[in-house]
Design a binder for these strands. Structure first.
Length: 219
DNA sequence: TAGGCCATCTGGTCCT
DNA sequence: AGGACCAGATGGCCTA
């Protein structure tokens, strides 16, 4: 429809962290721009080699910056059902409505090019943040005892095992002090991953027993 | 093929 | 003001 449709390619790069693959260069290549149509429709495509599991899933996002009025939310399909509409009421948030509105006005005042650049930079930061979060998960996986498996622990499994591990160690400490054990390992309360978690719980108990024995013999 | 898991994008909100 | 954080949406990969 618009003769001025543009294609902006975000860096086509590997996942950086998150497992394998290339690194996020962070470079942004604007295929082409014409100064005179900053507020026209813009299609932003970004192709990332997601997780490096395959040749790249070729995720692409399309940002429609067509005339950003206050009700432009409904113009963007991906936002129709987003939390923009589902977010729960929060008094604190409510009190910030004014500033949020002015923020939106400011955002709308930015040129399409500026907004696009900000968005790409924001995406890059978010990717880095998630990568560091995944690094932390990886480090956590390395220090919690678990049954060696073909596949790596999922995030929820990692967190649950870590919790069980902490509980088991706490029990050991309390037992050494002569206090009552604060935690008991009963049934697995998590529906999914039951096999792994059940194994982990018995492991946690074994671990606690072993630790206890070692400490006792050392004293 | 359905479901689980994951990476990424995105916009709102919070924080410094 | 700008970055961090958060959570919903989306789509790809993998496995049972």
């Amino acid at each position: 429809m618009h003769s001025s449709e543009k294609i902006i390619s975000a860096p086509s790069s590997g996942p950086g962290g998150g497992g394998s693959g290339g690194s996020d260069s962070g470079s942004v290549s604007l295929d082409y721009w014409r100064e005179d149509d900053e507020d026209c429709d813009i299609e932003v495509t970004s192709d990332y080699d997601v997780s490096g599991k395959s040749g790249g899933s070729g995720k692409s996002s399309h940002i429609d910056f067509s005339d950003s009025s206050d009700n432009d939310d409904i113009n963007e399909p991906s936002r129709k059902n987003s939390k923009l509409h589902k977010r729960k009421f929060h008094p604190l948030h409510h009190s910030h409505q004014g500033s949020a509105l002015s923020a939106r006005r400011k955002r709308n005042a930015l040129s399409a090019r500026e907004r696009n650049l900000r968005r790409l930079e924001s995406n890059e930061r978010e990717r880095m943040r998630m990568h560091s979060l995944n690094d932390a998960f990886e480090q956590l996986r390395e220090v919690i005892p678990h049954v060696k498996m073909e596949r790596k622990l999922s995030k929820i499994e990692t967190l649950t095992l870590a919790k069980n591990y902490i509980m088991a160690l706490t029990n050991v400490i309390c037992e050494m002090r002569g206090d009552e054990k604060p935690y008991t390992f009963l049934d697995v309360d998590c529906g999914s991953d039951s096999e792994v978690l059940e194994t982990s719980q018995s492991q946690s108990q074994d671990l606690a027993t072993n630790l206890n024995n070692q400490v006792s013999s050392a004293l």
